[in-house]
């Protein structure tokens, strides 16, 4: 007896591929390609100078990682306002350890990661315990962490720490900046986490259909805590990258990282309701925004226009993705 054929008509191969990769990602890839080529042409090849490429990629590293930090909580349908300031805190504490207490970078760097992860963990636990929208909870913790940054060294700057680390941070391997390579490695790790690890799949299940997840024995609370902890860890990584690249840190680091942390995943197609991630989309979106920055510098466009455009695109992307889902009112 032949099996009950349940397939409806198979769509053409191209559509399947695009469907697999994701429509947004394909669009973004095309956009990135077009934008890159356009910039190359209009700058008469300036863009292809090794110096320019290095600058572009170096300053792409932190936006990628910070975008991933936000993406991880978006996956469970949450948001974290504290990713920006947490980056700053990790960087400042780490630098403080090295400068004020002579701690070796081999300990100070993991220290930064630890702080990030710990703060993220606390965020997650608070959200679960108070059962309140993560936005408000992280609004409170963001305020706290924001203040804590200044508690390390006031408004002073740390520099001259671990010259070896900074040299490494500013170096390039095979023409690609080390910080960029670290960011890429992190991106690959995050992608792997969500695609292959059990914890990652369970996290996505919690975000995609909390009831189905619960019935399958998955703890939604645990997923939320894990997501926030991971987000904090990634913010810590971003802090380390800042440490490595800039060579001098102060307490104001992270103030301008909040918008990029949202812009990258949102433009990259990650839904605000949770359940889906797109590492590729987030990275591509960060890249596109970076290109916009390059163009702004190149053509002396008022940077405020960039802010406006990015803000507007985020608004549009959110509205588009939400109205597609047809969300009901609060």
């Amino acid at each position: 007896m032949s099996a009950t054929r349940v397939e409806e008509a198979r769509p053409p191969a191209v559509t399947t591929l695009v469907h697999r990769v994701g429509r947004t990602e394909a669009l973004l890839f095309a956009l990135a390609l077009i934008a890159t080529i356009t910039l190359i042409i209009t700058t008469h090849g300036n863009l292809l100078h090794s110096d320019t490429i290095r600058a572009v990629l170096q300053y792409l590293a932190v936006p990628i990682v910070i975008g991933l930090a936000q993406m991880v909580v978006l996956a469970v349908g949450q948001m974290s306002l504290s990713v920006g300031v947490l980056t700053g805190l990790s960087a400042v504490v780490s630098a403080g350890l090295m400068v004020d207490h002579g701690v070796t970078p081999w300990l100070a760097v993991p220290g930064a990661l630890l702080i990030g992860a710990l703060a993220g963990l606390i965020n997650g636990l608070l959200v679960v315990a108070t059962r309140i929208n993560g936005f408000i909870v992280t609004l409170a913790t963001m305020t706290i962490i924001s203040g804590l940054r200044y508690g390390v060294h006031g408004t002073g700057t740390y520099d001259g720490y671990a010259p070896g680390l900074v040299k490494f941070g500013r170096a390039s391997i095979l023409g690609l900046p080390t910080v960029f390579l670290v960011a890429v490695a992190v991106a690959i790790a995050v992608a792997w986490f969500f695609r292959r690890s059990v914890a990652g799949r369970q996290l996505l299940a919690s975000g995609g259909n909390p009831l189905a997840a619960r019935l399958s024995g998955i703890s939604n609370d645990r997923s939320v805590v894990l997501a926030h902890a991971l987000s904090g860890l990634l913010a810590g990584v971003a802090g380390v990258l800042v440490l490595m690249l800039s060579g001098s840190v102060n307490a104001s680091i992270g103030d301008d990282l909040l918008l990029p942390s949202f812009a990258a995943p949102i433009i990259g197609g990650v839904a605000l309701v949770g359940g889906a991630v797109s590492v590729l989309g987030t990275c591509l979106a960060a890249y596109v925004v970076r290109l916009v920055d390059v163009a702004q510098a190149q053509y002396n466009i008022n940077p405020r226009w960039v802010d406006l455009v990015v803000g507007g695109v985020v608004l549009g992307a959110v509205m588009l993705s939400q109205s597609k889902d047809g969300t009901d009112e609060t």
Binding site: S197, V198, A199, R201, G208, L211, A212, G275
Partner: peptide, 23 residues
């Protein structure tokens, strides 16, 4: 009651995802 982004196989096996050392 299924997770929309997951595949057919994953939804079926969601309760006891077969794993090897966390993967």
């Amino acid at each position: 009651n299924l997770v929309p982004a997951f595949s057919v196989a994953e939804n079926i096996a969601l309760q006891h995802l077969p794993r090897k050392r966390g993967i």
